[in-house]
């Protein structure tokens, strides 16, 4: 059978196998569009996204339904055993899954990024002197906003900042998804893989919840938070950043496909 037809047949089947997941993706993306204010109290909060745990959920449902569920057929999107025992090439099944996974996953950050074209600027609270200086020096056109009541300059406006933040989130989704793909394939053959993955899920969820505290900690110590530093590196070297992400993506897919093809189910 023609490989292209085989690929699209598998993609189509997986898209239609569990329509509920599309509603779930839509329900989760909607809150990102509801906020109309472009004035935020913390750059740290803007850079993190609690939706990162979705990467984990989609990843497990799509790529490794058997690893997380006792009966993958009950809720799994892409039942490995059923599909591998049809007239398919292992590599084609892997590719079809990866495509569906990344489409599902990237709909949210790409949607957020496109939406940000309508509201490209952002104002963020930055009361620390060093933080203000760093932002003003790194972002052309950025300016301090003086509060009329307090006569203090505690907000910084960043032209195009909203789009940059959304791009940063997009790259975070991609890097997180790639790490997950590699990790899940590494633990796939292990006896306690379900336990490892569930533990990881809980750790991720707790980290998401704990993320604001890192910003608070950075504020308390009068330092630039790690997340902010990373974001500044990202904005300064966007081309290299995206090339590295792309190269990482391609290499990861080559490695993952080879491993999947030789992996027992």
């Amino acid at each position: 059978m023609n490989k292209t037809k085989q690929f699209w047949t598998l993609v189509k089947f997986q898209f239609l196998a569990n329509p509920a997941i599309w509603f779930m993706a839509a329900a989760l993306i909607t809150p990102n569009f509801v906020t109309s204010s472009m004035k935020y109290t913390s750059l740290d909060l803007l850079l993190g996204t609690s939706n990162l745990f979705l990467v984990f959920i989609f990843g497990m449902w799509m790529l490794f339904p058997e690893a997380m569920q006792r009966n993958p057929a009950a809720t799994g999107l892409s039942p490995t055993e059923f599909l591998l025992t049809r007239a398919v090439d292992r590599c084609m099944l892997n590719r079809a899954r990866v495509v569906v996974f990344y489409v599902l996953l990237l709909i949210i950050p790409i949607g957020m990024w496109i939406y940000s074209f309508g509201h490209p600027d952002v104002q963020v609270f930055a009361f620390k002197k060093n933080e203000q200086e760093l932002i003003l020096s790194r972002f052309p056109g950025s300016a301090l906003i003086v509060n009329e009541k307090t006569r203090m300059a505690d907000f910084v406006s960043i032209p195009g900042g909203n789009s940059l933040i959304k791009l940063w989130i997009l790259s975070a989704y991609l890097l997180f998804a790639l790490s997950l793909q590699v990790l899940a394939l590494l633990v796939q053959g292990l006896k306690h893989r379900s336990m490892i993955l569930w533990t990881l899920y809980i750790v991720i969820l707790m980290s998401m919840m704990g993320m604001p505290f890192l910003g608070i900690l950075a504020n308390a110590t009068n330092q630039i938070s790690g997340m902010e530093s990373m974001f500044l590196i990202f904005t300064a070297h966007q081309t290299i950043w995206w090339l590295a992400v792309l190269a990482g993506f391609v290499l990861c897919q080559i490695w993952c496909e080879r491993r999947f093809v030789n992996m027992e189910q």
Binding site: L16, A17, N18, P19, A20, N71, P72, A73, A74, T75, G76, L77, P79, E81, F82, T85
Partner: peptide
């Protein structure tokens, strides 16, 4: 042709 002993097709299909 193969038929598994357990249900392998997703319930929503």
């Amino acid at each position: 042709g193969y038929m598994s002993e357990k249900a392998t097709i997703p319930g929503t299909t």
